[in-house]
C-alpha cells in the first residue's frame, strides 16, 4: 500500500510540476524515491502542522497542487480548523494524507493513534474523505483525489492486510466496490480500510451468502447504492478501524434511516481510548476488533430478537 502511495505520488509529480509534497517532518523512508526523483517538489515544513496547512492553502492559491502528509493523529486532527477555513472554505485543491490511521502505532499510545479523524473531516463542507483498503484502492484514490481539483482527506491505515482487489478498480467517486458477491436477501458487509480484509475473511468462513463491499469513499458516498444494499439485505454489518461515532457506520446508518431502514451493526471503536500497550493485533483485541470478537458480535446481532 505504501509503495503504491509513493509510486502514485512520484507519477503525479513527474507529470505535473505544480504538484508539491509538504511533510511535517514525517515519512523518513517513504519519500526516499520522491526526494530522489522530484527534489524541487519536496518541502519539509518542519514540526509545525498548523503553519504547514496554512502554507499549503497559500501555495494552492498561487497555482500549486499540494499534497500535505502527516500522521493522521496530526493531519487532519490537529489542524481541523486550518483545513476548514484555509482550504475547504474555498475548495482549494489540497490533498491531505493521514498515515498510520487507527491503531498502527499500537505501541506508542493515544497521541499517535487516530480513531476520530473521519468524524472530524466528514462534517466539513466541500471536503471529501477517502479511505482505501489496499494498494489498488490507494492507486485509484490518489488519481481521483488529484483529478477532482478539490480538497480531499485520504486516510491510510494498516497497510499490510493484503489485497482485496485483483487490480486497480474502475471506480466512480463515491461508489462502493463489491469484493464478494453473495445472495440477495442475506446479509451485507460494508467495510473500509484495514477491516475490508477482515470482513472478507469472516464472510468466506462463516457467511458464504453474504455480499462484501469495500467503501473507499466515505464522503461523498453513493447514497443510491447504499440504499439498494440496505433494501436488498436483511441486515448490514459495517466495519471500520475508527470510532463508531461519525465514521462509515454513521454514514450508512444516516442514509438507511432516511430511505431504507434495516438493522445495522456498527463494528468500530466504541467511544474509548486504548488502555494498554501492545502489538497491533493486541490493540485490535483490546477494542474488540479482532476476528473472533467481531464474529461473536455478528452472531449475537443476527440472533437477537
Amino acid at each position: 500500500m505504501r509503495e503504491a502511495f509513493s509510486e502514485a505520488l512520484v507519477r503525479l509529480a513527474k507529470a505535473d510540476p505544480n504538484v508539491l509534497l509538504l511533510t511535517g517532518d514525517h515519512g523518513y523512508a517513504l519519500f526516499d524515491n520522491f526526494r530522489k526523483q522530484c527534489p524541487a517538489q519536496y518541502l519539509n515544513a518542519g514540526i509545525a502542522e498548523q503553519n504547514m496547512v496554512g502554507m499549503a492553502a497559500g501555495l494552492a492559491r498561487t497555482g500549486f497542487r499540494p499534497f500535505v502528509y502527516g500522521l493522521s493523529a496530526f493531519i487532519p486532527v490537529r489542524v481541523v480548523e486550518q483545513i476548514k477555513l484555509d482550504v475547504a472554505h474555498d475548495r482549494l485543491p489540497v490533498i491531505f494524507i493521514g498515515d498510520g490511521a487507527g491503531f498502527v502505532y499500537s505501541h506508542l499510545g493515544t497521541s499517535h493513534q487516530s480513531t476520530e479523524d473521519i468524524a472530524c473531516m466528514r462534517s466539513i463542507p466541500d471536503l471529501s474523505v477517502y479511505s482505501p483498503a489496499d494498494r489498488f484502492e490507494v492507486t485509484a484514490c490518489m488519481e481521483m483525489a488529484y483529478h477532482t481539483k478539490a480538497p480531499v482527506y485520504l486516510r491510510m491505515g494498516k497497510s499490510d492486510r493484503g489485497d482485496v482487489h485483483g487490480a486497480v478498480p474502475q471506480a466512480r467517486i463515491g461508489s462502493l466496490l463489491e469484493t464478494n458477491r453473495g445472495k440477495t436477501g442475506d446479509i451485507a458487509f460494508i467495510a473500509t480500510g484495514s477491516l475490508v480484509r477482515t470482513a472478507m475473511d469472516i464472510a468466506a468462513g462463516s457467511y458464504p451468502d453474504a455480499t462484501v463491499w469495500s467503501a473507499p469513499f466515505i464522503k461523498p458516498i453513493d447514497s443510491k447504492q447504499v440504499r439498494t444494499i440496505c433494501e436488498q439485505n436483511q441486515a448490514v454489518v459495517v466495519l471500520e478501524e475508527h470510532s463508531v461515532l461519525g465514521g462509515l457506520g454513521s454514514a450508512i446508518a444516516e442514509i438507511s434511516s432516511e430511505f431504507a431502514p434495516v438493522r445495522i451493526l456498527r463494528i468500530g471503536v466504541r467511544d474509548r481510548f486504548s488502555h494498554h500497550c501492545g502489538s497491533y493485533e493486541y490493540l485490535l483485541k483490546e477494542h474488540g476488533l479482532n476476528r473472533p470478537a467481531i464474529e461473536l458480535r455478528i452472531r449475537d446481532f443476527l440472533t437477537a430478537d
Binding site: G54, A57, G58, T62, G63
Partner: peptide
Amino acid sequence: HGFSVGVGMAMGAKLR
C-alpha cells in the same frame, strides 16, 4: 491563519 497562508503565497512566488 492569514500569516501562514501568506507565507505559502510568498513561497509560491519564490518557486515560480
